[in-house]
């Protein structure tokens, strides 16, 4: 059941992009997402698409996985694109009915909106396919450090995040086990009325909550016995290292920005 969820899952291979510092990957992908909104003509979109494609190729991940990453969102993209097409006006009118119309401007806008979505999803998929969730959490912690000054418990938040990530596979296994046990007792998750199906979740949720609480209690005891007393005065085993490649990636992004703004002038 869960085994089919591949969307955005880390693919453990080695590539230039895999080796980048998660902080530079995180910041650069966020930056790129903002950058996409500055594209304003087909040349600039084509340019960004080309850089995205180049990045994807650098990750050495099969293209199929990017498609898997996009597929769950395809419905929302199409809907947005359609709304964009029928509600924007201007240029030659090809068809209209009441407030709806298909115009040349509408079509162009539709294509742009599609491109925007597509590029943003591709870049965020690059981030998640090449960076283990834990490193993303590390990057978030590192980038949040200035917030310590205003008393945000950054270390606690980071530890919570890391424990949550660590327990996701455990709890997914657990869910699968409980589902199997209840299916063996005749629960049917895939047929029957909506109410019946919602009801069939109860025999899963209750054992899952109980198990999660038991685990949390055990974990708290184990952490205490291992000397955990809260955020401050802890040294860190895991450190992030900024390398030459990260500087190069930033310079590359600056060049892309310059290119984009040049193309905007066309």
């Amino acid at each position: 059941m869960f085994t089919k969820v591949i969307f955005g899952r880390y693919v453990p291979i080695d590539s230039v992009i895999h080796r980048l510092d998660p902080r530079s990957k995180l910041v650069l992908s966020l930056y790129f997402i903002v950058l996409v909104f500055f594209a304003n003509n087909w040349q600039s979109y084509a340019f960004l698409a080309a850089t995205t494609l180049a990045t994807i190729l650098l990750t050495k991940v099969q293209l199929k996985f990017f498609w898997e990453g996009i597929r769950p969102l395809i419905f929302i993209i199409i809907l947005t694109v359609l709304l964009q097409i029928v509600f924007s006006a201007g240029g030659t009118v090809y068809w209209h009915w009441g407030i709806f119309s298909i115009t040349s401007m509408g079509l162009v806008n539709g294509v742009y909106v599609f491109m925007r979505f597509f590029l943003i999803i591709c870049m965020s998929t690059v981030l998640t396919l090449t960076t283990p969730p834990l490193l993303i959490a590390d990057a978030v912690e590192s980038l949040m450090k200035p917030l310590l000054k205003i008393k945000v418990p950054v270390y606690e938040i980071a530890l919570m995040l890391s424990i949550a990530l660590r327990f996701i596979p455990t709890l997914m296994d657990e869910t699968q086990k409980i589902m199997n046990a209840q299916r063996a007792r005749g629960v049917n998750f895939s047929s029957g009325s909506l109410i019946k199906r919602v009801k069939s979740i109860v025999p899963i949720l209750i054992p899952l909550f109980i198990s999660a609480f038991n685990r949390a209690e055990d974990l708290a005891t184990a952490m205490e016995s291992r000397g955990y007393r809260g955020g401050d005065h802890r040294s860190k085993f895991r450190i992030l290292k900024w390398r030459g490649a990260d500087t190069i990636a930033c310079v590359g992004m600056a060049a892309i920005t310059a290119g984009l703004f040049l193309l905007r002038l066309l």
Partner: peptide, 16 residues
């Protein structure tokens, strides 16, 4: 098992 990887987990008590 507190850490996200084997070495992180072994390090947990030392970090504390």
């Amino acid at each position: 098992f507190v850490g996200a990887t084997v070495q992180d987990d072994v390090a947990f008590g030392l970090e504390n």
